[in-house]
């Protein structure tokens, strides 16, 4: 068996380098902060239309990420989308009348939920529902409205 000691050292180096690379990928390349989100609370919000919102989309307040969308459901009675927002426990003082809007990051970017704080003393807790919501802007609807109003103007003249 060739120099057993140097073989061991090389294998040790190899395994250490491999683990270090995995560690670097986990820490430096990926958003490990996702894991810390597990401690937190869920609130629901109902939207008429969620556009292109997806599970894991970010939830932000004042542009700062405070949580993520953890579940998207559909209420067959009211025909609304029920979105569950998972908010990190670090942000547990959000007022009860916080409103939720669906925004788009940039012109073609992904959609996210933006929260606007209200003024109530009561705070959001596990299971609370956000009552004030605004649906996603769907580009086709917007264009449709624009065309209709243009058409109405033309008839009035």
């Amino acid at each position: 068996m060739m120099h057993s000691r140097s073989v061991e050292i090389w294998v040790g180096l190899f395994v250490a380098a491999g683990l270090a690379a995995l560690f670097m990928l986990a820490m430096q390349v990926s958003n490990l902060s996702m894991l810390n989100d597990d401690a937190g609370y869920d609130v629901t919000a109902r939207f008429e239309n969620i556009g292109g919102l997806k599970v894991r989309s970010p939830v932000t307040m004042a542009g700062v990420r405070v949580g993520r969308v953890s579940h998207i459901g559909f209420d067959p009675q009211s025909f609304e989308a029920v979105v569950t927002l998972h908010i990190s426990s670090a942000y547990d003082g959000l007022p009860g009348d916080t409103s939720a809007n669906i925004f788009t990051a940039g012109l073609l970017g992904e959609q996210y939920v933006g929260l606007e704080p209200g003024g109530e003393e009561e705070v959001l807790r596990q299971g609370s529902e956000i009552m004030l919501t605004q649906s996603a802007l769907v580009l086709e609807q917007l264009i449709g409205q624009f065309l209709f109003s243009k058409g109405a103007e033309g008839e009035a003249k």
Binding site: G18, L19, A21, L22, L25
Partner: peptide, 11 residues
């Protein structure tokens, strides 16, 4: 070895 090598490659 394979996963370690792949991780090194990506990093």
């Amino acid at each position: 070895s394979m996963p370690l090598l792949a991780a090194i490659f990506s990093a």
